[in-house]
């Protein structure tokens, strides 16, 4: 008994006794993330830092040991590179607007109407992604070129002589919209599927018109998906190269083309690096601003409190 009573009396002492915590030098979370951190530092940050370093080197140098200079940035601002930046920007914006307009009805159909046919459509859109982008674009060249599938067919069947749309700006936009459609569409499908049917039905019951439901209910609720898709396609279009080269005959010199030229024929790594940094800075600012605006948790269906609400 005595021992039992001793135990009974000892229990509160143990419960209230503070066990000194061992001070950990490294938290388990950090330790677990270490391989990924090291990988990112080596594979992601180090090359970027090298590019940043080169952008401050004198022109045409191939080493990072020279005295830093701003001459590359000055050269960019004093030359007509703004044309490539603004034209790339214009093409990217046009592409995003077109993609959003085209993707909305498809996304709506896939999320709300098509039922199991949506899976078929998903496959039909995904399968071409297994073919190289250049080959798909070259297919478009064969379709659009003078004497090609479209114009050759029109001439053979109807005797109509058409002008090819190749090597002009619209051909570049066509290529961009075609290539980046899945990147706008699928986030948008996710966005539209986040709009509860009950909410739209309630809006209709309360006398809202179709347009009002679209503008005041569906669009705001699907906005995270729309923004993610728009952001993704904007960044991809801004850094695109193949569409302008293959379909556009370089009717527009994209900023990615300028960077490639500086690194290869120009043999001017510092200039190419400075152009790259400006592009990264621009895209990065945009991404961070928008991500600040979008509630990623909401998109992923997680409430802030983690309770699924």
């Amino acid at each position: 008994m005595s021992s039992a009573s001793d135990t009974m009396t000892a229990q509160p002492t143990i419960a209230t006794q503070k066990i000194p915590r061992r001070r950990r030098l490294v938290s388990p979370g950090l330790l677990a993330a270490l391989p990924v951190i090291i990988f990112l530092c080596v594979a992601f940050a180090a090359p970027l830092l090298a590019v940043l370093g080169y952008s401050f080197m004198p022109e045409k140098t191939f080493e990072l040991t020279q005295a830093p200079t701003l001459e590359n940035y000055l050269a960019i601002f004093s030359n007509s590179y703004y044309l490539s930046f603004t034209k790339s920007l214009g093409l990217a914006l046009t592409t995003v607007v077109l993609l959003l307009v085209i993707s909305w009805p498809i996304a709506y159909g896939m999320a709300k109407i098509f039922g199991r046919w949506a899976n078929f459509l998903t496959l039909a859109i995904i399968i071409p992604l297994f073919v190289s982008e250049n080959i798909r674009l070259f297919g478009w060249v064969l379709f659009l070129i003078k004497g090609g599938v479209m114009l050759g067919g029109l001439k053979a069947w109807f005797g109509i002589d058409g002008e090819s749309m190749l090597y002009e700006v619209p051909a570049i936009v066509l290529g961009l919209v075609y290539v980046y459609l899945p990147f706008a569409l699928f986030p948008m499908v996710l966005g539209v599927s986040m709009v509860p049917r009950e909410v739209t039905e309630a809006a209709f019951d309360m006398g809202a018109s179709r347009w009002q439901v679209f503008r005041e209910v569906e669009l705001p609720l699907a906005m995270p998906g729309i923004l993610i898709g728009g952001l993704l396609t904007f960044i991809l279009s801004l850094g695109s190269l193949a569409e302008s080269k293959i379909l556009g005959g370089q009717a527009v010199i994209m900023i990615a083309d300028e960077i490639e030229t500086a690194f290869t024929f120009g043999q001017n790594w510092p200039l190419g690096s400075a152009l790259s940094m400006l592009l990264i800075l621009f895209s990065g600012t945009l991404v961070l601003t928008l991500l600040n605006w979008i509630d990623l948790d909401k998109i992923l269906g997680r409430g802030k409190g983690g309770n699924g609400d």
Binding site: F138, G147, Y167, K245, I246
Partner: peptide
């Protein structure tokens, strides 16, 4: 037309 692809250029010439 500007391109660095000789196949695309020949295609444009042939067509």
């Amino acid at each position: 037309l500007l391109t660095d692809d000789l196949v695309a250029m020949n295609l444009a010439l042939i067509n």
